[in-house]
Design a protein around this nucleic acid. Structure first.
Length: 472
DNA sequence: TGAAATGTTGGGGCG
DNA sequence: ACGCCCCAACATTTC
């Protein structure tokens, strides 16, 4: 059998990896590559913490593959345009029979892959690509009239009907025939590539490796998933799985996680609530595939592009840095800075504050999130922002605006979360902490940057200016 | 995966 | 005792 090549992208693991599994089926000689594209990452606003996470996971992956007699080779080009040529060179130098990779669905990645497949055709290298990121393949979830779902609830009902409780998982491959390939001039050591520097704190908070991801799933499914319905909304409890970075970079597959949610626990309301979150991820990915124009920063509802979004650099920065004068908002934004991650409910609260109370363009918030999030994913992030800004399909009605002080009292009643991330308010009483009075506000804490009532009215007015039909 | 404004009701204070 | 008013408390509607 011929030399097989696995191209790793957002699937940095050896178990349940369709591309790796198929490449290894016959105990072929197998080589693996990873191609860093720093300029492209910057274009996509990929966060430093996320790129560092890739770096650390690639080191793990290299070791795991080495045990299977598969060497992972590293390359770096600036952008996707240069990838096809590089792959062509590699395939010819190494006499590759077949290239294997798992699909990525955003527009630029699909275009890149089409170019790569075209080049493979020219040089007579076979290629196979596989669905990996989705529980259900693109185009497989359709309404009775064979159209994509635009609303979550019917989508999720249909998806659940099509989903088994135990999905097939590809086993990790067995040891392959060793192969020595000529070193290419373009090849690099992992450490020689351009990697960002991030704090040890963040590294410790998000340990790398497939084994760690397994441990996280097991730990979550052992108990927290059973309380998820209640605890998921309380940021101070840490009741969420915190699996998103691992899912986003493919350190673990969504199929593995789906199976675990059934396997480890008695199905109850909480388990279903959590599975629904996996289906929201699924929903947004399907939306992006069926409506790729949303990835070009177009609102799903074109009319909402007529909103006269405000641009205020100073206010945007106050929001970004957690200096808005609203304790819960500031705690959440500081969590994002400190951890590269934010609790799900708080993502909604801060997104709505920016897009509604401040009426600042949701795309600026979307961009900031991508630049900061270790789990940044185009589909989920765009979907979430358009939900909050009421510009998306099945988004929140424009008049349903979260009050950040009310949300604070409801979901952080003792101010535990606020006290942790906004230490200058830690001494305030449970009553005062959600919105300190002028008298009790410390010198080093800003006044509220907007009158909530005025901001709310301004947002309602802006949306009402659009046509008043029910499509908004 | 709201919040504010408005409407309704019923118990208690009080002349 | 009675009616009136006040205003929580809850319900409905509006955005």
């Amino acid at each position: 059998m011929g030399h097989q090549l696995v191209w790793f992208r957002n699937d940095l693991r050896v178990s349940d990896n369709p591309a790796l599994y198929h490449a290894c089926q016959q105990q072929n000689p197998v080589s693996a590559i990873y191609i860093a594209t720093p300029e492209q990452w910057r274009d996509h606003d990929d966060a430093d913490v996320k790129i560092d996470f890739w770096h650390r996971n690639l080191a793990c992956l290299k070791n795991s593959l080495a045990e299977l007699n598969i060497e992972l080779h590293f390359f770096q080009v600036n952008n996707y345009q240069q990838v096809p040529n590089l792959i062509s060179t590699i395939c010819q130098q190494w006499d590759i029979e077949r290239l294997h990779f798992n699909d990525e669905y955003p527009v630029n990645e699909r275009f890149r892959d089409q170019q790569v497949m075209a080049v493979c055709g020219q040089i007579s290298v076979e290629y196979q690509h596989y669905n990996d990121q989705l529980l259900l393949p693109p185009g497989s979830v359709r309404t009775k009239s064979d159209t994509p779902f635009k609303v979550f609830t019917p989508f999720s009902k249909q998806a659940k009907q099509q989903l088994e409780q135990s999905l097939y998982l590809y086993p990790a491959p067995i040891k392959q025939t060793a192969i020595n390939v000529t070193t290419l001039t373009q090849a690099s050591q992992l450490t020689e590539l351009t990697w960002p520097i991030v704090s040890d704190d963040i590294k410790a908070f998000w340990p790398e490796g497939e084994q760690h991801a397994f441990a996280r799933v097991a730990k979550f499914c052992r108990q927290p998933i059973r309380d998820y319905k209640q605890s998921r909304d309380i940021p101070s409890l840490g009741g969420t799985s915190r699996l998103s970075p691992y899912l986003a970079s493919g350190i673990i597959s969504v199929r593995q996680v789906w199976n675990a949610s059934w396997q480890y626990c008695e199905p109850n309301d909480s388990v279903q609530t959590w599975q629904n979150e996996l289906l929201w991820r699924e929903f947004y990915k399907h939306i992006l595939i069926d409506y790729p124009e949303v990835s070009r920063h177009k609102p799903w509802k074109p009319l909402t592009d007529n909103i006269d979004w405000r641009y205020d650099e100073q206010q945007l920065q106050a929001w970004q840095q957690g200096q808005t004068g609203f304790p819960l908002i500031d705690a959440a934004m500081r969590q994002l800075l400190a951890r590269g991650w934010m609790h799900n409910r708080l993502r909604m609260v801060v997104a709505m504050f920016l897009s509604k109370h401040l009426l600042i363009d949701w795309r600026l918030g979307e961009c900031w999130f991508m630049q900061q999030l270790i789990d940044g994913d185009l589909a989920a992030n765009n979907g979430g922002w358009q939900w909050s800004a009421s510009t998306g399909t099945d988004s929140v009605p424009y008049f349903r605006i979260f009050n950040p002080v009310t949300q604070s009292k409801r979901f952080d009643p003792q101010g535990t979360f606020i006290r942790h991330y906004v230490p200058e308010l830690a001494h305030l009483s449970d009553k005062e902490i959600h919105m300190p009075s002028d008298a009790n506000r410390p010198q080093n804490y800003p006044k509220p940057m907007v009158d909530l009532s005025d901001g709310r009215q301004r947002a309602l007015a802006a949306f009402k200016l659009l046509a008043t039909d029910s499509t908004i």
